[in-house]
Amino acid sequence: MDLALLRTFVTVHRAGSFTRAAALLGLSQPAVTSQIRTLERQLGRPLFLRQARGVTPTTIGDELAHKAAPHLDALMEIAEAGLDEDSSVRTLHLAGPPEFTAERALPALTALSGQEGRSHALRVSFGNAEEVLEGLSAGHHDLAITTVRPRGPLLTATPLCDEEHVLVAGEPWAARLAPGRPRRRASLPLENLPVVEVHESLPFVSRYWAAVFDGRPVASGAVIVPDLRAVLSCVVSGAGLAVLPRYLCAAALERGDIVTLLDPAVPPLRTYFLAVRTGTLAMPHIARAHEWLLRTAAGWA
Rank of each mutant, 00 (worst) to 15 (best):
V231K: 01
P172M: 12
T260F: 06
A68G: 05
A4P: 04
P179G: 02
G238C: 08
F273A: 03
T271W: 08
L64T: 02
P203A: 04
G240V: 04
A105E: 06
A31Q: 09
R246N: 09
R50S: 10
V259M: 10
R270N: 11
P217F: 02
A22I: 04
C249T: 05
V124E: 05
W173S: 08
V205T: 08
I36D: 01
G215P: 01
A265F: 11
G117R: 07
G170T: 14
A157V: 03
H93Y: 09
P107G: 05
E171M: 14
H290D: 01
A174Y: 01
L106I: 12
A52Y: 09
E291I: 04
C234L: 13
P182V: 03
R216L: 14
V218W: 14
I145Q: 05
Y272K: 08
L106F: 06
T158L: 12
V259G: 03
S220F: 10
T11L: 05
F273L: 03
T38L: 13
S28N: 10
R37N: 13
P97L: 13
E80H: 14
P98A: 14
P264G: 02
L193F: 07
S28M: 08
A102Y: 10
P226M: 06
S87E: 15
V12L: 02
V235W: 02
L241K: 04
